[in-house]
């Protein structure tokens, strides 16, 4: 195995351009599980943790190399909430938001928030420069994304004026260190517009747009509307049954969780 340890983004992009198949290594918390269990045998690894510019938070730009431990202290309320639920303290010290984006697991804890605040994923290559993709275009399937072989995920770009009213919650069977069976994020603009995104209930982070529309029509929802909101969310998700949970439970819990978060937003 060969390893390249660039200290600048330019060097990293050079390396990636020269060897488009190379594996990108950030915190290692996803890739090394694959390596340890013999599912991945990298031939060339480009290690990204020495690149200072990736590890910066600059206004609406969150560098891909920022760790969850740092994001636990984020001013974005829901981002801090979700960061605290990623793996264990040890995982949060190593794992990065860029790694979470790159792995593109349906259960990726950061993804519902990125989808709910309508962040764009910034990817960069030596030859084609910077591309910014909305979540809906970047995440293409279970552990699949639109990153080209010569690109590196460089940042999550937040829109101007991300609402401060935002809530995240995650259901796992255990109280800590657990993969989500359902996660959700709700954000609410000052004008009452609500966005609802869910994780672990579809191949990619899912925006519950019909449920959002229901609240747009009923910005001060009655109990009946809230009940309809729950039903709508449950209808919009497309979860599966696996060894972690069941399709039916996930559908039910997605609705309940989204309502609770909506109510928390409405109460603020």
């Amino acid at each position: 195995m060969e390893i390249t340890r660039p200290t600048s983004l330019v060097e990293a992009l050079e390396a990636r351009a020269e060897d488009p198949g190379a594996d990108l290594l950030a915190g290692g918390t996803d890739l090394m599980v694959e390596v340890n269990f013999g599912h991945s045998r990298p031939e060339h690894v480009i290690a990204l943790r020495r690149i200072a510019e990736l590890a910066q938070i600059d206004g609406n730009r969150i560098g891909a190399g920022v760790t969850w431990a740092r994001l636990e202290k984020s001013d974005h309320r829901a981002l801090a909430q979700l960061a605290r639920t990623v793996g264990s303290p040890q995982i949060r010290a190593a794992g990065t938001i860029g790694g979470n984006i790159g792995t593109a697991s349906p259960a990726g804890d950061g993804l519902p928030w990125l989808a709910a605040v309508e962040a764009e994923i910034e990817v960069t290559s030596k030859d084609r420069g910077v591309r910014r993709l909305p979540c809906s275009e970047f995440f293409t399937g279970v552990k699949r994304n639109a990153l080209a072989p010569d690109e590196v995920i460089t940042a999550a770009i937040l829109p101007e004026n991300v609402p401060t009213n935002q809530e995240f919650a995650k259901i796992g069977q255990r109280s800590a260190m657990v993969i989500s069976t359902v996660s959700a994020c709700v954000v609410r603009d000052d004008d009452g517009t609500v966005r609802v995104a869910l994780g672990s209930v579809a191949p990619t982070p899912l925006r519950a747009t019909r449920a959002e529309a229901l609240i747009a029509e009923n910005p001060d929802p009655s109990e009946a509307v809230l009940a309809e909101f729950v039903r709508t969310v449950s209808a919009e998700v497309s979860p599966i049954t696996d060894h972690r949970s069941t399709e039916s439970y996930r559908r039910h819990a997605a609705g309940v969780l989204a309502r609770r978060l909506l109510e928390r937003c409405l109460a603020r």
Partner: peptide, 12 residues
Amino acid sequence: AIVTSCLVMAAD
């Protein structure tokens, strides 16, 4: 930082 050394690639 405290990390799990099983998930750190030694080469890095």
